[in-house]
Design a protein around this nucleic acid. Structure first.
Lengths: 216, 216
DNA sequence: TATAGTAAGATTGTAGACAATCTTACAATG
DNA sequence: CATTGTAAGATTGTCTACAATCTTACTATA
């Protein structure tokens, strides 16, 4: 088999698909913060027993996207603006900066190409003013970057933080002055990434991560 | 009922007790990193069905204390030293500093007294060279402090980070030059906490959180 | 002897039924 | 009319049994 390696098989189980589906529904804005999730209802809709649904709920609860009270209910979390600006964003920055530092030596042209690909989609979404699609691309971009660090524990922490930030923004109907700015910031980031100067990267990253504007 | 309020009832379910028991076993050093957890075996030992055990496993997995592969196995996580020093500790510092800033205005003499109480236990444990007990007191001290911030989402993130740091230290058989130093550092921290000067607190906190020494 | 095939046992995943708890509405009481 | 008691239904928690998948040891084949 020489210089070739297959990718590891991703065997998955129901709880993972269900977790993803619920997370997607949250990020599509279909399950808004505060809404209650009923196990039986979901189990009927998905055609699945409550077991794997409950496991998915426990995972999402631990991720910080759901809140549950024993024998009562589990609801979609409500994240405050203060948590986002004062805690989640600083942590995200710490994590992502570190991940990029680890990822840099691993990065090749094909990784750059993949990132460019994602940005092309994002530019497209920006023109169509599709805010959910932009958010998906933003996630894809940063997640791909972080995943190149190859530090599995960091990745999961990062996701959990990132998701809570995203949840807050969705519920706040955040407004970018210009959606295209989001795209442009990523382009700047990608350019300094290709240069490989960590100081410049940190600079671009801090600008980007803190640049979100609210509607007030 | 005038000036009196009851504390909220903590209704709990099996999955929470199981989660706590497994976590304790990990922190007691009885379940070491890398060890495999078998659902059936645990279910027999605890006299409980596999349902709540599986939910507990999913929670601990999301906490970063366990690692699982679908249809294969779930094991106790192995945390690298690099993750601890370069990511987990910086994040912990960010979180705890923020939590204390939020907690300060809420802190009264009775809170100080509670912290002193914990430290008394810790001094005791240091004399007896009981490293597990010291670790418990350390957790109690910082968790109490963080919980005073009243920001529930921060607390859970903090715990997850803190636990992984602790897991790493336990598996590394860390050596303090002098166990009593741990106690003394906390005393310094408590003193500046009572003064209430945030700059001094940050200073004491950063010294304390970064002060752990390895065995090499 | 190295490789592939096979089958048994172990383990994890899922389903469905029953138990415990909570919520709600309504009746009883003063 | 405000408060307490009660019972029905809804929902979550737990258990048991069965299905799917994995691991291991053994056999067959070249």
């Amino acid at each position: 088999m020489e210089n070739f390696r297959f990718e590891e098989q991703k065997v998955t189980s129901l709880r993972h698909k269900i977790t993803d589906d619920i997370r997607k529904a949250i990020f599509n804005g279909q399950l808004k913060p505060g809404i209650r999730l009923r196990e039986i209802e979901m189990s009927k809709q998905m055609g699945v027993s409550r077991g794997p649904i409950r496991e998915a709920l426990r995972m999402l609860e631990q991720e910080g996207l759901l809140v549950s009270q024993p024998y009562k209910e589990t609801t979609v979390a409500e994240i405050t603006r203060e948590e986002v600006t004062e805690v989640l964003i600083p942590i995200r920055f710490t994590l992502e900066q570190f991940a990029i530092r680890k990822a840099l030596p691993n990065m090749t042209g094909s990784h750059h190409a993949k990132l460019k690909e994602i940005l092309a989609e994002m530019r497209d979404a920006a023109q169509k003013r599709d805010i959910y699609k932009i958010a998906d691309c933003d996630l894809a971009f940063h997640e791909y970057l972080v995943s190149l660090s190859d530090m599995i524990n960091i990745i999961s922490t990062w996701k959990s933080i990132y998701n809570r930030i995203r949840l807050h923004f969705l519920s706040q109907a955040l407004a970018y002055e210009n959606l295209n700015d989001v795209y442009l910031e990523h382009e700047v980031l990608l350019n300094v990434l290709m240069e490989g100067d960590m100081d410049k990267i940190s600079e671009a990253l801090t600008v980007h991560i803190h640049s979100v504007k609210w509607d007030e």
